[in-house]
Amino acid sequence: MLELRALSAGYGRAQILFELSLEAKPGEVVVLLGRNGAGKSTTLKTVMGLLRTRAGEVRFDGQRIDRLPPYRIARLGLGYVPEDRRIFTDLSVMENLEVGRQEPRAGAPHWTPERLFALFPNLGRMPERLGGRMSGGEQQMLTIARTLMGNPRAVLLDEPSEGLAPVIVDQMAQTILALKKEGLCVLLCEQNLRFAHLVGDRAYVVEKGHVRYAGTMAELEKNDAVREQYLSV
């Protein structure tokens, strides 16, 4: 469903991604693992069109999207949840959801504020709360809910567990598994190996913009050498 072929990208003179390839299927949770600065977030931003692709291609449902502006990519049904949440702090919870709203899409779950409030009960208790007046965990819920309002078929999640209290992290894992059950394709970046094990089916280990390892989550768990070399700090 989502396919990156020999993708290269970077900022200014610095190249970050070097011919990176990976794929993710519907109903599958794929985890990009790697240390700080490995190129995980850059990968997601490039897929989303927020960063220009220098070489290689990105395909979504077989269609090339690497030259499209972000809004066109979003309207094809690819959702993006940024690392730093980027909630519209001047807008209420309902208004944040409204910004993300798109028409129902064939082959994707249809989300309404009511359904999302069932998934994130905290948000349902504060529909008029301004985004800027919410806790980090609540904002993290809101940023995911906002993206789901676009009825995506696939979502890119940038470090959804970062900076959250342990109990919220578990809740986040449940949410991701719920999305998977809906048939969504999920590609997420993580540094938190425990969290990755909770949700992931397959993993790509990234270092310096190259894929160093690809395999199922279970295989990675057994491969101490890879974990030692690319993930431990």
Binding site: M48, G49, L50, P69, P70, Y71, I73, A74, R75, Y80, P82, R86, F88, T89, D90, L91, E95, N96, E98, V99, G100, Q102, R146, T147, G150
Partner: peptide, 24 residues
């Protein structure tokens, strides 16, 4: 109005609004 909400969202973070499918 929805238009007004989008305007306020874009005032704060144009790029994010775009990534949510708003045609700037």
């Amino acid at each position: 109005t929805r238009w007004g909400t989008l305007v306020r969202a874009a005032t704060q973070d144009r790029e994010m609004a775009g990534a949510l499918g708003v045609n700037q």
